[in-house]
């Protein structure tokens, strides 16, 4: 009976396969193999292959892996000031959406989107020299497009 149970367990474990782990590099260039478990916006929790947990600030990882953490946890890889600009631009559109229904005309929406895009552009252009990474630039363009698309 015990043998049968162990055999079933072994088959199940084999079917699940090994827990997927990635290589992560910190700012000092040290590499560890671990699985990304959590990211709260500041702190990253990694689970190493020996099951021990490692908690470290996002800034402790190299730039590439910082972006990878954000990407894997579905967070924008755009710098903080771009995200702040996007948040403020979205706030303009949300203000329009709170207007009485009869005021929410297509023309009005277009004007509100124009204002939101203007705010986003001004803030981002003020620090455009900092946007050199092509992946980050792609993300900035994606955020900008998502604002513009709200006019439709």
């Amino acid at each position: 009976m015990l043998t049968t149970r162990l055999l079933v367990l072994a088959v199940l474990l084999a079917a699940l396969g090994p827990v997927r782990a990635d290589m992560w590099t910190n700012q000092a260039g040290r590499v560890i193999e671990a699985r990304l478990k959590e990211f709260d916006g500041v702190w990253v929790t990694l689970v190493r292959t020996n099951s021990s947990t490692l908690r470290l600030p996002l800034s402790a990882l190299c730039k590439t892996d910082q972006r990878r953490v954000r990407a894997q946890k579905s967070q924008s890889i755009a710098p903080g000031f771009v995200q702040a600009a996007y948040k403020d631009a979205v706030g303009i559109l949300e203000r329009f959406q709170r207007l009485p229904a009869d005021q929410q005309t297509a023309e009005g929406r277009e004007k509100a989107v124009h204002m939101a895009c203007s705010v986003f552009d001004a803030r981002v252009n003020a620090r455009s020299a900092e946007l050199t990474d092509k992946d980050v630039l792609y993300e900035v363009r994606r955020l900008r497009a998502s604002l513009a698309n709200r006019a439709q």
Binding site: G80, F81, Q83, A84, A85, K87, D88, G91, I92, M115, S118, V119, A122, R123
Partner: peptide
Amino acid sequence: RDSYGIRLSPDSA
């Protein structure tokens, strides 16, 4: 406020 009258949010400046 920025040049569009929007109160700056954290990380802006």
